[in-house]
């Protein structure tokens, strides 16, 4: 039951993030939307790691950790590029 709740919440988060990414134009909102989409996928992965009596499956956990690192670096690069654009526009 808890598994379904977490997994379902993950899919809802993904859909919300996708909607916000497509609808809003400001860079910051797009980035937050992407991160929410990512959290949705991570939610789903953590939910499927549960195996009842057995200890949780370690593979999805490893995937989520790697995914978080990737998401942080991607966000940082996008923010740096966005700041560069803002500085250029401000300097004109």
């Amino acid at each position: 039951m808890a598994q379904l709740l977490y997994g379902g919440a993950g899919v809802v988060l993904f859909a919300l993030g996708l909607w916000a990414f497509l609808v809003y134009t400001p860079l910051l909102r797009k980035l937050i939307a992407l991160n929410i989409m990512g959290s949705g996928v991570f939610h789903l992965l953590i939910a499927i790691a549960e195996r009842g009596e057995l200890p949780p499956d370690p593979v999805p956990h490893a995937l989520v950790l790697t995914g978080i690192v990737v998401a942080v670096s991607a966000t940082a690069l996008a923010l740096a590029m966005g700041r560069r654009l803002e500085e250029d526009e401000g300097g004109r």
């Binding site: 993904f14 860079l27 797009k30 949705g40 996928v41 992965l45 995914g67 996008a78 590029m81």
Partner: peptide
């Protein structure tokens, strides 16, 4: 142009990752 490329690429890889999660499930 490349910021847009980066964002589109991230959207693409997130969608791909959701597919991977479904397959692993």
């Amino acid at each position: 142009a490349n910021l847009r490329y980066l964002l589109v690429g991230l959207l693409g890889s997130m969608t791909y990752l959701l597919g991977v999660a479904l397959l692993y499930t």
